[in-house]
């Protein structure tokens, strides 16, 4: 090998490395800017009063977003109750039967579902649910549940697929029936991965506005009735931020701050879970 131009080649390599590092650093900047901006604008709005009161009419001072907090919590909760069992079981099926035709087509459907714009899901739910039972928290939950599904399915599938087949064989060779192998060995071993998938899917849907616009509609009063319109965090931000009143803008910043913190927290928890509960294989 000719090493006469080793110096030149070496400096090229260093240059390339610096470019990579530079861009890796660059991508953190937008996040930092957004974070700082929202914290700056929103942190002052958040206090006990803000968290425990419904919005006041225009002109009145104060007011809070408790209706949105409660609404989001209820809708995400109901969506999870609907989507998680389906998602996890479907994920188990896909990982266990990766070669079957059904798995191929349902996997394809999951991918397509993941790519469907959230507003389209909102419209579909509007036609299916809202036109029968009216604007309601339930309709919003269904829309969010559908958005959750692909993330839960895929993360469950990926996690379980990473488990070595020898694990399943070990259990089967002890005479353990199939359903017990799945429930007692496979799922517990992949638990951290499944849980982090759930967390990520919640973090994803809690910020969804579009499917809620014409399903849950929004409600300026505190409501826990699933069959009635319900407020949500992203909707409250959208609604108040596009209003012409400064007081409402402040509310929107506060709500943004809360939402951001929540999503951030979920992501951090996910990271901690995967690191802490990671099963050493």
């Amino acid at each position: 090998m000719n090493l006469s131009n080793a110096g030149y080649r070496n400096s090229k390599s260093i240059l390339f490395q610096s470019v990579i590092v530079f861009f890796a650093f660059l991508i953190t900047i937008p996040l930092i800017i957004v974070l700082l901006y929202i914290i700056e604008k929103g942190v002052l709005q958040v206090n006990w009063h803000f968290l425990t009161n419904v919005p006041k009419p225009v002109g009145e001072k104060g007011g809070g977003i408790v209706n949105a907090l409660v609404g989001s919590a209820i809708m995400v909760g109901v969506a999870s109750v609907m989507a998680l069992p389906i998602g996890i079981l479907a994920g188990i099926y896909l990982s266990e039967n990766s070669k079957s035709k059904l798995a191929y087509y349902s996997g394809l459907c999951v991918d397509i579902l993941q790519g469907v714009p959230s507003i389209v899901i909102g419209i579909v739910i509007y036609y299916w649910v809202v036109l029968t039972i009216g604007y309601s928290g339930l309709a919003g939950s269904v829309a969010l549940g559908i958005m959750m599904l692909p993330i839960v399915i895929r993360s469950t599938e990926q996690t379980l697929r990473l488990l070595p087949p020898s694990l399943k064989e070990a259990a089967l060779s002890l005479g353990v029936p199939y359903h017990r192998v799945i429930l007692k060995v496979i799922v517990p071993c992949g638990f951290a991965g499944i849980l982090s998938g759930i967390m990520l899917s919640i973090a994803r849907i809690i910020g969804e506005t579009a499917p809620l616009l014409f399903t849950a509609l929004g409600n300026s009063f505190l409501s826990t009735n699933l069959l009635k319109p319900m407020e949500s965090l992203p909707h409250v931000i959208y609604y108040y931020a596009t209003s012409p009143y400064d007081d409402w803008h402040d509310l929107a910043w506060g709500a943004s701050f809360i939402l951001l913190m929540f999503v951030l927290l979920l992501n951090i928890i996910t990271k901690v879970i995967t690191r802490k509960w990671k099963i050493q294989l």
Partner: peptide, 19 residues
Amino acid sequence: IYVRAKIGMVFQRPNPFPN
């Protein structure tokens, strides 16, 4: 189930249950 309970098996790679 009965067959496998009566016949033990040890595999190529050690595979204790990690959990």
